[in-house]
Design a binder for these strands. Structure first.
Lengths: 193, 193
DNA sequence: TCAAATTTAGAACAAATGTTCTAAATTTGA
DNA sequence: TCAAATTTAGAACATTTGTTCTAAATTTGA
């Protein structure tokens, strides 16, 4: 692996573990055994590292979405599988979700990029939902206004469940996934066929 | 108003506007027209300022809860009024909610204090819910496990709606309140009598 | 093979930041 | 009223941090 990618890898691990507040470029450099000067040869500014990590996240999300359009969700088991894969992705880049607002105002292109991510997810969710209505998994009489609220709730839980968990139960790994999945599914529960 | 309180007032406004990343003690001092030395005479460490603001938040929340136990919620209009008051409080201390995880790991007593806040809210919600079931507003056949999920959802939306809004719609004031209220109420919608 | 391009280490710099120190100004209260 | 307590300003300090600079080491590719 080349130095540039290793910087991103170590930076991600440190940001996730220690939080963006306490991780510095020197910190990243010494952890991976290179000089700070070398790190800044590869990434001129700290923001460039964070932006690159954010772009990794959106790229990974694109892959999930592409998979989803090739293999549509048709039942609850497949819905759970999709929920799980989104959980793992969010957990992998947890520092981004934990500092989303701060990062968004610090690095404006992150906010812009997030807007695009949201609209991509909205389309994807709308398709997913139509499929599940057609497959007689969901009821077909849900008002559009209510559906909008459900979509917002779904995104809010997806993006901030990790933060909430960090402050309260601090569940990890499989245990966290179980509750996360349950919380997401409970949005749908009342609207099952 | 004495200097100590004015420091808290100015610090709150700055943290809310500029974010904790870019606000320094010097910044706070010059904004209110005093010296940095003077500020540090009143608050030895930056954490002391943030902790004091957090304690203001929990105190204000206690007042709401006390009001709630004196005047129980018995119908949807009263539920909305309660939702509104919690919204205003959260908006007033928005920087705390936006940086909750980061603050929790930086200042451990904030995390501990938040745990207490959560259990206080759990009790309060449970009482509120019982009242609304007894008043025939809510259905009485909701499984305890589902109720737990609903409580978690309620808290998650309460605490992170501001963050989510900041990244997407960026609604302000009355407009924000309307959507916030709708999102909270939509959790209950399927369980109305 | 060897010159050009690249990567790297480490010193150095400037700015920022939290905090302390000192001495003056102001307030308090007996 | 005046001595003691308090508040305040501003200089000063140590540390940190992001970043740049320089020169050496390494890699590349013709």
């Amino acid at each position: 692996m080349n130095t540039k990618n290793k910087i991103l890898q170590v930076a991600l691990a440190l940001y996730n573990q220690e939080g963006i507040r306490s991780v510095t470029t020197r910190h990243i450099a010494t952890t991976m055994g290179i000089s700070a000067g070398n790190l800044h040869y590869h990434f001129k500014h700290t923001e460039d590292i964070i932006l690159a990590l954010f772009e990794q996240l959106t790229a990974a999300y694109d892959t999930i979405v592409q998979n989803l359009s090739e293999h549509p969700v048709l039942n609850l088991a497949e819905l759970e599988a999709y929920i799980d894969s989104s959980f793992y992705l969010i957990e992998q880049y947890r520092f981004i979700f934990i500092n989303f607002v701060e990062l968004g105002s610090w690095i404006p292109s992150i906010r812009e990029s997030y807007q695009k991510l949201v609209s991509k997810r909205e389309q994807e969710f709308s398709r997913l939902f139509t499929n599940l209505v057609n497959a007689n998994v969901f009821r077909s009489d849900i008002a559009p206004a209510l559906l909008n609220s459900l979509v917002r709730q779904l995104f809010l839980i997806s993006d901030f469940w990790i933060s909430s968990n960090e402050l309260t139960a601090q569940l990890r790994g499989e245990e966290a996934l179980l509750i996360y999945r349950q919380d997401i599914l409970s949005i749908f529960t009342p609207y099952l066929q």
